[in-house]
Design a protein around this nucleic acid. Structure first.
Length: 207
DNA sequence: GCTCCGATTATCT
DNA sequence: GATAATCGGAGCG
């Protein structure tokens, strides 16, 4: 399968190149599939906003391993978020999957996301995306090349004209780095507030 | 559409 | 002991 060789190549490259390239890709786990519409890059231990910023811990160990593995963590006492590790082994970079559009398995996704009013809300936000796909710490460390979770790139990258970028969401540190990428105008892109109540905004996705 | 606020617990200091 | 790469509901427009 030539597609998966290309995926390996993309994920092994610089995280700021990989992130926009993953827009439009389809993430599948069992019967539910999500087309990614919003991602965020976390660029190694030198990125103050990254979980890797304060070195390796049991939780973030996967980030320090080879690219192509899922880093799934639990936060706010109730939510999971999923990333894919990028860059050469030891780089500790990753792309967070922030939102997507459910393209298969709507029934399962709906059953797991009863609060979703519309289909566009099923995977609109990193916690929601994990819930729709039923991803949790059990998938931490899963290799996309050899596991139950798959990621399929688009044959052709999305036109850069169709991609927007802006500040990251929900971080205390270095949120202002414009490392969030999304498909301009897509209904499933999250539109959440920044972490700081008083801080500069500009992170809203265009509607 | 928007803003505010509480929930709930693994993880790290 | 404090924090967190969030979410959903309430109240307002």
């Amino acid at each position: 399968m030539p597609g998966s060789a290309e995926l390996v190549e993309v994920l092994a490259g610089p995280v700021l190149d990989a992130a926009p390239r993953l827009l439009g890709a389809v993430l599948r786990y069992a019967d539910v599939a999500v087309r990614l519409t919003e991602v965020e890059a976390y660029d190694g231990p030198g990125d103050p906003g990254s979980h890797a910023a304060r070195g390796r811990t049991p939780r973030n160990a996967v980030m320090f391993g080879p690219p192509g593995r899922l880093y799934v963590y639990f936060t706010y006492g109730m939510h999971h978020c999923v990333n894919v590790v990028c860059g050469p082994e030891g780089t500790a970079s990753a792309v967070l999957f922030r939102a997507g559009e459910v393209v298969d398995g709507h029934e399962s996704a709906r059953a797991r996301r009863p609060a979703a009013r519309r289909d566009r809300d099923l995977a609109r936000g990193p916690g929601r995306l994990c819930q729709a796909l039923a991803l949790d710490r059990g998938q931490d460390g899963t290799d996309l090349a050899d596991g139950p979770v798959t990621l399929t790139l688009l044959a052709e990258p999305v036109d850069t004209q169709a991609i927007s970028r802006g500040p990251r969401v929900g971080l205390r540190h270095a949120a202002q780095r414009p490392w969030r990428f999304w498909l301009t105008g897509d209904a499933s892109v999250s539109s959440y507030r920044p972490a700081s109540r008083s801080g500069v905004d500009g992170s809203r996705a265009p509607r």
